[in-house]
């Protein structure tokens, strides 16, 4: 918004300005005409479906009877009783929290290390920086497939090198045994998402004023002291926002775990359970109830995010 706009705005506020109402009204009409297709699309394909999930969660609806069943009426609390009462639910919630917490911490940690290591320029930095972003843009199906083959106990390269060079007694079934599967999906999440944190933190580092650090260096601060007392405090707000965003996304992540383990071996996160209830069991009501629980947690997180970080973003 340049000064011209504010000048126009002031001109509009002048009491005697001719045609003020009609210009204003015409601008508003054009604005609504231009934005309304998007608003309609988002309402129909995002907002209404979310509201409809609430209705579905209180119904006993099966996939097989979907084409004949009435879509409204016959409300019941059975789905929630099923969801909260089933033995898998609470352990699944714990798994999801561990996955989201671990994945968030690991990806931000590695992103921070990468941003600091690449902070000073060197020949080929642009290329290195671009290469580090590849896991984030690569198709998730290809990435999970190649990781699955790499970690395969029969002919995967990791197990071959581990037994051959590192002296492992036997191949590790990374994706199909209990503690290792959850750890592996967290490492995968770190590999795939650290570029996001890396980009964010790099942008923040570039915006940090050099004078502060120079002054501290003149006063005799060592590199670690510089980081601890000058750089880290400046990064902290960025990292807080990042942590929240990454936690929200990892908490809801479906693709990575579904494709890596299918939710087996102690990686049964809630999003994969929603999918299983919907597709394998064909139980629409229970799937919706499950999704609602997920939304409730998400709603809390989004509210925190909005309060905390997004106030000036939304204009």
């Amino acid at each position: 918004m340049g000064p011209a706009v504010s000048a126009r705005r002031q001109a509009g506020r002048e009491p005697g300005a001719p045609g003020r109402g009609t210009l204003r009204a015409r601008e508003a009409r054009t604005g609504w005409a231009l934005i309304s297709p998007t608003v309609v699309l988002v309402l129909v394909l995002v907002v209404l479906p979310i509201l409809w999930t609430v209705v579905l969660a209180f119904q006993d609806l099966r996939l097989i009877r979907l084409r004949t069943a009435g879509l409204f009426g016959d409300y019941t609390f059975d789905n929630f009783a099923d969801v909260f009462g089933s033995p898998g639910f609470w352990s699944s919630l714990v798994t999801t929290l561990m996955y989201a917490g671990g994945g968030t911490a690991a990806s931000i940690g590695l992103g921070l290390v990468a941003a600091l290591a690449l902070r000073r320029g060197f020949r080929g930095r642009t290329l290195v920086r671009a290469s580090l972003l590849l896991p984030y843009v690569a198709p998730v199906v290809a990435a999970t497939f190649v990781w699955g083959v790499m970690l395969n106990p029969q002919f995967g390269v990791v197990n071959e090198l581990g037994t051959g060079l590192l002296g492992w007694d036997e191949p590790i079934a990374f994706l199909s045994e209990r503690p290792s599967a959850l750890l592996t999906v967290i490492v995968f999440e770190m590999w795939r998402s650290f570029p996001f944190a890396f980009l964010f933190i790099t942008a923040r580092l570039q915006a940090a004023p050099a004078t502060l650090e120079e002054a501290a260096r003149v006063d005799g601060a060592t590199p670690t002291q510089l980081f601890r007392h000058i750089v880290w405090p400046q990064l902290l707000p960025t990292i807080a926002v990042l942590a929240l965003l990454r936690f929200i996304w990892t908490f809801n992540n479906f693709d990575d775990i579904y494709l890596l383990t299918g939710g087996g071996a102690g990686t049964d996160v809630i999003s994969v359970r929603v999918f299983d209830f919907l597709i394998s069991r064909g139980d629409i009501g229970a799937a919706s109830a499950q999704a609602l629980v997920l939304s409730a947690v998400l709603l809390v997180l989004v509210t925190v995010y909005y309060r905390f970080a997004a106030k000036d973003e939304v204009a």
């Binding site: 934005i35 608003v39 988002v42 394909l45 995002v46 907002v47 209404l48 479906p49 979310i50 409809w52 999930t53 579905l56 609806l61 996939l63 979907l66 084409r67 879509l71 929200i248 996304w249 809801n252 992540n253 479906f254 999003s271 929603v274 999918f275 919907l278 629409i284 799937a287 919706s288 999704a291 997920l294 939304s295 998400l298 989004v302 995010y305 909005y306 997004a310 973003e313 939304v314 204009a315």
Partner: peptide
């Protein structure tokens, strides 16, 4: 509208999976 779009951006696709699947099947 800005707030609405931010919410859409933060809402994950798995939550839309059930209703959209049911709707388009129907």
């Amino acid at each position: 509208i800005g707030v609405l779009f931010l919410a859409v951006y933060l809402f994950p696709s798995i939550l839309l999976a059930v209703p959209l699947f049911v709707f388009f099947t129907r």
